[in-house]
Design a protein around this nucleic acid. Structure first.
Lengths: 290, 290
DNA sequence: ATGAAATTATACTAATGGTCTAAAAGGTGA
DNA sequence: TCACCTTTTAGACCATTAGTATAATTTCAT
């Protein structure tokens, strides 16, 4: 019943809007959706998983609307960019998602913070590209800086206490910031005054630090999730990797060998996709650390 | 033993730096400081109170160093402003306080969020004034906007994922932002393009919304704190106000009458100062809501 | 109708922030 | 030294929370 899952998501969304993420307990969601705890944890492995889906919905909706806005339009039209930016701000504002976004910067929950980092990174890249669309190719070498600064300004000036009084539309607000960007963009290009190295940024997401704890957690939860379906030898593989990784100095080459055969073993299973993600991270961890 | 309190604060600070605020439990602090739970709650009425003191220390230290930097110096020297701004960023970075600051924007804990809002507000006001020092009087009408935007840019560009690679000093970073502000300030003045109404902002802090819950908490904790010293009739006053406020529709005029006599009663007590704060808030709440 | 999957109710665990208490330790003035 | 007062301690205790576990029941496709 995807219906039921939707029901849960709607209930959760509703509560998050009303009381905020941290002040909404799983129990609250369960009560609101009139389902049982078991059902909730059948759909989501944690409260964070649940909020991730809500964030993901918001992201998709934003992307869709943004795309629609550009159909048959001039990509260099500044007003459209302003609208595109505003859309995201409005969606996040209306759904009370900002606090989650901000608050999680610090949280070290692997899944959620990973998701949010990626999201933010994509937003910066998107905005940088659009700025080039609007302000011309010569903008390229400073577009990432501008994107980052712009998002910072928007976020800050949106705080209720700075505005509060004036009733001002999101478009006006973004427009205001856009004029600021416009007036600083030339001097940046002229003086070649840029902080962010585009090349470095390009590969940024791949370079997110992968911690041992993160990988261990991922692997453990994978094991947990498919405990029943796993065959004996597959389980042994996982167990071994867990043990070896937990050592102070995992033996790199042994690990590599085991993971190699391990990945092969799973090629045709239903959980193959999820597994490749995990193993990819194990690989990266090994490469980076040892 | 103020010594012991210091010990606790140092332990807490240490743990916050290492694991962050949310991931440090009161128990952790207690263990680290080698004191008992009772002692901790003797000094701080809550975990938040504890972190507030740490934040306050950081604030004071920042203010002090900033003042020192300006002694016998030209207030219009841009480099000094850059250093002054950097000081705060460095202190907050080193003590891992940023996450607290950011995360609490959403928290509705009265004390902590109140403190942080006030702090942030003071920072904006300070920076706006200093920008006028540096860029001249004609900057005044856009200085608040610039201050807000500047803080937003700094905060955003500090994120580890945007920089990460380059080793860059805080001063360079702030200098970079300062050049951006410099290049947008003129057009703002010329076009009179400003969002923040200075007058409104001036009174901002007084206008922070006062919730019923907040006032109730404040009153309860006051009662708790002075339970032994309070006389019977004083206690009755407090009890009554608590009860009445808890009703769906408190009777405004009765409350006013009681609070009036209540305030008089305490005129000469040792806790008079704290009480006036509480009653002032009760007044405001009544005025605003009923 | 049957058997598998989804769902329920509910009990449970572990961690957390915070309260409370009775006893011990420490310091101070007489 | 004694009496008295404050601080400190250890630990029991409470409520809330995320998340697990399980046995019973409902749903639903074949």
């Amino acid at each position: 019943m995807l219906n039921k899952k939707r029901k849960v998501l709607i209930a959760a969304q509703h509560l998050f809007i009303e009381k905020g993420f941290t002040d909404t307990s799983v129990q609250d969601i369960i009560d609101e959706a009139k389902i049982s705890k078991g059902t909730f944890y059948n759909y989501f492995s944690s409260k964070n998983e649940c909020v991730i889906e809500i964030l993901e919905n918001a992201r998709e909706e934003t992307a869709l609307k943004r795309r629609e806005l550009l159909v048959y339009q001039d990509i260099s039209d500044q007003r459209i960019l302003i609208e595109q930016i505003s859309i995201r701000m409005k969606i996040y504002r209306d759904r009370n998602l900002m606090p989650i976004f901000v608050a999680i910067f610090q949280a070290q929950d692997s899944g959620l913070s990973e998701f949010i980092k990626k999201n933010h990174y994509e937003e910066i890249k998107w905005l940088a590209e659009r700025l080039v669309d609007v302000f011309g190719k010569q903008t390229k070498k400073v577009s990432l800086d501008c994107a980052v600064l712009m998002l910072g300004m928007i976020q800050q000036i949106q705080h209720p206490w700075t505005l509060k009084s004036k009733q001002i539309s999101m478009e006006e607000l973004v427009g205001f910031i856009m004029r600021r960007v416009e007036s600083m963009i030339d001097s940046m290009i002229d003086t070649n005054d840029s902080l962010i190295d585009p090349h470095r940024f390009e590969n940024f997401y791949e370079d997110v630090e992968i911690t041992k704890k993160h990988v261990l957690d991922q692997l453990k939860s994978f094991k947990q999730q498919y405990l029943d379906e796993l065959k004996e030898n597959e389980l042994q593989h996982i167990e071994f990797i867990l043990e070896e990784l937990s050592l102070k100095k995992p033996r790199k080459y042994i690990l590599e060998a085991v993971i190699h055969s391990f990945s092969d073993t799973f090629k045709k299973t239903s959980y193959h996709k999820q597994l490749t993600e995990v193993t990819a991270n194990v690989w990266k961890l090994i490469d980076e650390t040892y």
